[in-house]
Amino acid sequence: MSTDHLTPVLTGKTLLRANPVSKLFAAVVITLALMASIDWVSAAVVLACELVLMPLLGISAVGLARRIWPLLVAAAIGAYGTALLAEKTGRVLLDVGPLLFTEGSVAAGIAVGLRGLALALPGIFLLLTTDPTDLADALAQKLRLPHRFVLGALASLRLVGLLVEEWESLGLARHARGIGSDGSIVARTRNLLGQSFGLIVQAIRRATRLATAMEARGFGGGTRTWARESTLAPLDAAVAAVGLLIAGGAVTAAVLAGTWNFILS
């Protein structure tokens, strides 16, 4: 995954103004509701709501698919595997040699696939529509997380992009020394390990320098002020309410449909 896949798109208008904390709250509530039950109705309701929300968040279907295609593949594999191996209840749908699918096992497979996707999307939406600096401001000012930790994490996020470039130039530099892509699998693996070690050395070096630069600017004291105030507005109450609504709606629908399957029962 290249770095531009990790960068927020920030094209949506309305929800960009929402505080990251309210978006985080909505994402957590929805995730908790999904985790409480393994059934296809609650997962389908959440997934449908998420897809409906996409235009509002300024996320295009194509852009999203390009970023999360490994997740789609994983969800499909998970669904197939579950349908194949789950308890075989209900009518037989397909029976070809070792492949046996029944209504019960297919329903379980669909539930697992939908649930995986529905679980992953709130977090992805949060990251895609939130500026990391705003998120750090909100975490430190609204949730009172320690500022050293929050700002340290924010600074290291910026180093990730630099390390991607570093990895590429390390590869070229090693190729120039005579380490190429023309070796055996063993040689290639050894090369990959060596290059990874080189990257770790450079990462530590850069992180140490960055830490010095931060300390030289007074970072690390007990208290600090914030140039950007993280504020909560009526919009944030609405965002939180939508989160609660989706979570509540999913649970209600599953209970009414009789598919509710509480994980602890």
């Binding site: 600017r217 007074g218 970072f219 690390g220 004291g221 208290t223 600090r224 002020t225 914030w226 140039a227």
Partner: peptide
Amino acid sequence: VAFAAENLSVPR
């Protein structure tokens, strides 16, 4: 630019 001033607890 604001980062260092924040660390010194300068008012917003």
